[in-house]
């Protein structure tokens, strides 16, 4: 159980560091809030379009925004790790007997906590805009968001550790982010898409996660979407942690 203790130690230190600069966590919320205010209202007339999922436009749009927050809020944490490597902090920790998984998970836990905080805030604000959703559904969405955050922050750390350069990481993330976003149905549901595009989007795991999040917010607990979304998010989290731990294990040059 010493790995758990070590992860908590790293987590606490990382949280203190984030707390010292809360402005970043708040700035990360600005983008989804802009989407909420400036893009959300565009969807209302679409609710009667054939193919548009059931429920109010907010219950379709907000789950997408939450997944987007989870993706873009954590995808870039690798930059922070590259900075830490440059400072020599990562090496200083790698030379201790602490478990490599703990060094990774302490950081991932910090990212997950920050992300869930942001998501709760976003849900609260969306409620003001007109979102209505069952509490159980919102809880399910938060779990999915948490799993996604764990996954993407782990992958991002692995990429940062491997690439060791901000430029290379930025290129990688940019080339991944746009297709993942467009093929996930975050902004507009993929049920509106032509068949080939819909089928293509099914290959993107995030599209299943988005569907699951929408079903949860709608309160559609009978459909299989929630379970599928949850399982995909869980699989992504497990894969992320596995890849991240492996990368932390191997010396990186």
């Amino acid at each position: 159980m010493s790995a758990w203790r070590e992860a908590r130690l790293v987590f606490r230190q990382q949280l203190r560091l984030s707390w010292r600069q809360p402005v970043w966590a708040v700035l990360a919320l600005i983008q989804p809030l802009l989407y909420l205010a400036l893009f959300g209202p565009l969807l209302r007339p679409l609710t009667h379009t054939p193919g548009f999922p059931p429920g109010s436009s907010w219950s379709v749009f907000v789950p997408g925004l939450l997944i987007q927050l989870a993706m873009f809020g954590t995808m870039f944490v690798g930059f922070g790790l590259i900075a830490e490597m440059r400072y020599g902090v990562v090496e200083r920790m790698r030379v201790t007997p602490a478990s490599r998984m703990a060094l990774l998970m302490g950081r991932v836990m910090r990212d997950a906590v920050v992300l869930v905080g942001q998501a709760v805030l976003l849900i609260a604000i969306a409620t003001v805009f007109g979102l209505r959703a069952p509490l159980l559904g919102l809880a399910a969405v938060l779990v999915i968001v948490l799993l996604l955050g764990i996954s993407l922050s782990s992958f991002s750390y692995a990429a940062g550790l491997k690439l060791r350069s901000e430029d290379a990481l930025a290129q990688l993330l940019n080339s991944l982010a746009v297709p993942l976003l467009l093929l996930s149905g975050i902004l507009l549901p993929m049920s509106l898409a032509p068949r080939w595009l819909y089928l293509l989007s099914r290959l993107n795991p995030f599209s299943h996660v988005v569907d699951g999040a929408r079903a949860a917010v709608r309160g559609d607990f009978g459909s299989g979407s929630i379970a599928v979304g949850f399982i995909v998010a869980l699989a992504l989290a497990v894969a992320g942690v596995a890849v991240g731990t492996r990368t932390f294990h191997r010396e990186s040059n």
């Binding site: 203190r16 560091l17 010292r20 600069q21 830490e84 400072y87 020599g88 902090v89 090496e91 200083r92």
Partner: peptide, 11 residues
């Protein structure tokens, strides 16, 4: 003790 430093400036 590494040659190139080992601390986070914000800590």
């Amino acid at each position: 003790v590494a040659q190139g430093g080992s601390t986070n400036p914000n800590a």
